[in-house]
Simulated assay, not measured.
Amino acid sequence: MLYANGDPSAAAELMQRLAPRALGVAIRVLGNRAEAEDVTQEAMMRLWRMAPDWQPGQAKVSTWLYRVVMNLCIDVKRRKRGRDVDLDAIPEPPDPGSSAADRMQDLARQDALQQALMQLPERQRQAVVLRHLEELTNPEISGIMEISVEAVESLTARGKRALAKCLANRREELGYSDD
């Protein structure tokens, strides 16, 4: 693995490929972009430090990184327990091809989803983010969260139901119709 040998171009390529997804997971789990950026940076540094000892075939680098991100998010949440949690995440940059109204609608939907995600119990939120927003498979999530596939299925199902309940009375406001 070129990355393990300190190759700067391999490091840059791996960073470009993995950091945005790690950041997305951390933002969705923590609800705070600044904290998520810190988590992502720490996770990428841990990957850099452990790269020389990486055993090919042991696990996928991305799966290992998601696990580290989740652990770091849990650590951040533990440190913050008892304090107010900032639910205002900085939204993703708008698509320049979209109209202002579409961008505003998308931002409202993202904010509503983030607020609803933050109301879920932590493990449900993690499972829903990894499965439905990061589109990982249940076995991958099982490895990351260190639980059975059946537990992943249960957490995601309960999380989806809770999200639907949280967002049900906002369908019209968020531009969804029954058509």
Rank of each mutant, 00 (worst) to 15 (best):
H132N: 12
R123G: 00
L107R: 15
V149I: 09
D106Y: 10
E140H: 08
L130G: 00
I144P: 03
V129D: 07
T137C: 11
R109G: 05
M118P: 02
Q124E: 15
S142E: 09
Q119C: 13
A108R: 14
V128C: 03
R125Q: 11
R109E: 08
Q126P: 03
S148P: 01
R131D: 05
I141P: 02
E153P: 00
L155Q: 02
M104L: 15
Q115T: 15
D106I: 02
I144R: 02
V149L: 01
V128P: 00
E153Q: 11
R125W: 09
G143L: 11
V129G: 07
M104V: 12
R109T: 09
L130Q: 04
L107Q: 15
E122V: 11
E140P: 02
Q119W: 05
Q119A: 09
E135M: 11
L117M: 11
A116P: 10
L113D: 02
R125D: 04
Q110N: 06
R109I: 09
S154E: 05
I144L: 09
A116D: 04
Q115K: 15
M145Y: 01
M118C: 05
S148N: 06
V128E: 04
S148L: 04
I144Y: 04
Q126D: 06
H132T: 03
E134D: 12
R109S: 05
S154G: 00
Q115C: 13
R103D: 10
D106W: 10
R131G: 01
R131E: 03
S142T: 04
E153G: 10
P139A: 14
V149W: 00
E134F: 06
L113M: 13
D102C: 04
T137Y: 12
R123I: 06
S142K: 08
R103Q: 14
V129F: 08
Q114P: 00
L117N: 04
A108L: 12
Q124K: 11
L120A: 10
L133M: 14
R125C: 06
D106V: 07
Q105P: 00
M118N: 10
I144D: 05
Q124Y: 05
P139H: 12
Q119V: 04
M118L: 14
Q124R: 12
N138Y: 14
I144T: 13
E150N: 10
E134A: 14
A151T: 09
R109K: 10
Q114R: 13
M145C: 01
T137S: 15
V152A: 03
P139S: 13
E150R: 13
Q124V: 03
L133Y: 13
A127T: 04
E135W: 10
V152H: 01
Q114D: 12
A108D: 15
L107D: 15
E150C: 01
E140C: 07
V152M: 03
R125T: 06
L155F: 08
S154C: 01
L136D: 04
L155R: 03
M145S: 02
L133R: 10
G143V: 08
A112Q: 07
E134S: 08
S142G: 11
S148Y: 06
R103V: 13
G143P: 09
S154R: 10
L117T: 05
V128Q: 01
L117E: 09
S154N: 07
L133P: 01
Q110G: 03
D106H: 12
N138M: 12
S148Q: 06
L107C: 12
I141R: 02
S154D: 07
